[in-house]
């Protein structure tokens, strides 16, 4: 391994990692919002919207992100919806993630017994007060382990962004391997950078999970 090469490549990887993180977090943020809305619609059986979200969730949970991105990036412009690579990456991740988050939040809501809502109502709370103070705090903390697993899964999924010519870590690595044959160094940096991105999230996830388990208020 040639350390000079590594030093030379380092800035390229840094730039790529920033791009991955930027698009990744935007995608995940929207995934959370989308997933939350879909979960509420599913749980409270809003007519019509419920069927639509159901179809959406099934479609995106059962197809690969790569295929979703190809459709959005290459397909949609043909019907007059041009999408830039950045937006496509974030949107694809948000749509995929939204379908996963929806299931996570929905099962979280389902795990809160109905008597919790009823006893909050019987104390004279309004529906949204009962939701805010009683149901949601419980549903969210039940969802935490699955939620963090989703975040890690989505961050890993960003590794296909290079397919829509976003200059992410994979793109950089492939480029450098193809151009200069510095395979070992390129792969080494690739692994290191993914560790830098994912290891802290993974450690934080298991810490949160452990804390929840010990401080757990569940019966």
């Amino acid at each position: 391994m040639d350390w000079n090469v590594i030093q030379e490549y380092l800035p390229l990887y840094k730039e790529a990692a920033v791009l991955t993180l930027r698009i990744g977090w935007i995608g995940i943020l929207f995934a959370v919002i989308l997933g939350f809305i879909c979960a509420m619609i599913q749980h409270y059986r809003v007519p019509i919207l419920r069927q639509i979200t159901k179809v959406y969730i099934e479609l995106f949970r059962n197809t690969p992100l790569l295929v979703q991105l190809f459709f959005i990036y290459f397909g949609l412009p043909k019907v007059g919806l041009p999408v830039s690579a950045d937006v496509c990456g974030a949107a694809g991740l948000a749509l995929l993630g939204g379908s996963y988050m929806a299931e996570t939040f929905r099962s979280g809501l389902e795990a809160v017994e109905t008597v919790q809502m009823e006893s909050a109502l019987s104390l004279g709370m309004k529906w949204f007060q009962a939701m805010r103070y009683v149901v949601l705090p419980q549903a969210i903390s039940i969802s935490v382990p699955a939620f963090t697993a989703n975040v890690i899964f989505l961050l890993k999924e960003t590794s296909v962004f290079s397919a829509i010519s976003l200059m992410d870590l994979m793109f950089t690595a492939k480029d450098l391997i193809g151009l200069y044959y510095k395979t070992t160094e390129s792969l080494f940096l690739l692994v290191v950078f993914y560790l830098i991105i994912l290891l802290p999230v993974s450690i934080a996830a298991s810490l949160i999970e452990r804390r929840l388990r010990y401080a757990g208020f569940g019966n």
Partner: peptide, 19 residues
């Protein structure tokens, strides 16, 4: 909600808020 404040209810399952 106003009327429910005047009616206290205790359920069979201990329905305290666990959090």
């Amino acid at each position: 909600a106003d009327i429910r404040q005047k009616i206290g209810m205790v359920f069979q399952s201990y329905d305290l808020f666990p959090h």
